[in-house]
Design a protein around this nucleic acid. Sequence first.
DNA 1: TTACGTTTCAAACAAATGTTTATAACTGGA
DNA 2: TCCAGTTATAAACATTTGTTTGAAACGTAA
Lengths: 219, 219
Amino acid sequence: MAQNDTVTRILDTAEVLFAERGFAETSLRTITSKAKVNLAAVNYHFGSKKSLIQAVFARYLDPFTERFHRALDALEARHGGQAIPLEELLETLAGSVLEVPAERNSLKVFMRLLGLAYSQAQGHLRRYIQEEYGGVFTRFTALIRVATPELPDSERFWRLHFMLGSVIFTFSGLDALRDIAEKDYDEHVTVRDLVRRLRPVVVAAMQAPLPPSVNAQEA
Amino acid sequence: MAQNDTVTRILDTAEVLFAERGFAETSLRTITSKAKVNLAAVNYHFGSKKSLIQAVFARYLDPFTERFHRALDALEARHGGQAIPLEELLETLAGSVLEVPAERNSLKVFMRLLGLAYSQAQGHLRRYIQEEYGGVFTRFTALIRVATPELPDSERFWRLHFMLGSVIFTFSGLDALRDIAEKDYDEHVTVRDLVRRLRPVVVAAMQAPLPPSVNAQEA
DNA sequence: TTACGTTTCAAACAAATGTTTATAACTGGA
DNA sequence: TCCAGTTATAAACATTTGTTTGAAACGTAA
């Protein structure tokens, strides 16, 4: 139990600090002193700072991918080979994202970490996430393809990334944006609230009319 | 000229490295050695690393804000006090953004820096940008407000940030995404092409139906 | 208890960081 | 030419970083 306790305390503290300041800006000494464990404990239990970062992600992404896969299984079964509407796919994604960290009441941390994974270069992290969790994303985009047959493949590709950008950008800058929103509109914004606001926006964006076709636009 | 040369070489090198790796991950020694100037030159010419970061931003944002202000002046004059349609506002923003770094062919760097300014905590940076360049953004959002009277203020605030995320995320990850698109869809994507694709998406997103009102969603 | 594998701990390590200093080199005007 | 003032340079500075070490403390099964 002593071991488990130390490992958990490190992970709990690290994920919060990483989410607040980023990876490079958070030192092992800050983590270990705040977690009230010895400095060497990180290298003993995780091996290195890089591995600690990956472990922090794994603790969120492992349960997420499992649940998301299961949710997609259920969704596919329910539609028995028929195309699944776009809204349901998005709903399932949002549901799976929201479910996982609800247990620890740290959805904000989860989102901010996802944002950091993209925005902070950290080559090893992107590689790790791609190799470890790229499969679900591939499965999901294949289903989106069936749900939006009117979109050319390349157009859908870009729109999905536009939307991914909205989500990641918003959540990874959440604290700052929330402060502004709170001050200017006297409104306390929860993550669930943002998901609620995102839903119609994402659907509308994916269903927007196609851009005028390219004529002589090369540069 | 020797002075100007050193200052410029530092800025040119720093902005690329910052965009590639982030601020904390880029040391002054990396910058100065790559720029072929003495290590102390940064502290001599800029005072500190923080000030260098701000100078990198200023070199993009100063000309941008000036041009954008002028473009908005012209737009307002052309409509003589009448409300300006959303499409025209977005068009003007896109035009101003595209104009500035075109001179140095570094739109990608500009976008990536903007993304970092939001995602990296770096308190001093956000404060600096807000104090120095908050004005244009305020002016622009005020015009957007007139163009979208059907949106509640807070809803418009969030949707603007959703779209900001799409743009910054897409352009700051442009190289990687372009490679994928090229390989998977045999399509060479230009920046103008992306702007063309973004236009209908952004308009549709801003005009999406309002989300269902909040009932008992607090957490 | 004894003995053994695991975990903790304080200390030290080498490397890297931003910044400062003192000296040299250069610049343009008297 | 000589002299300010500006810029460049190498060296050193004090911190901070991630990691390693060796001994102590702990828990557990024989």
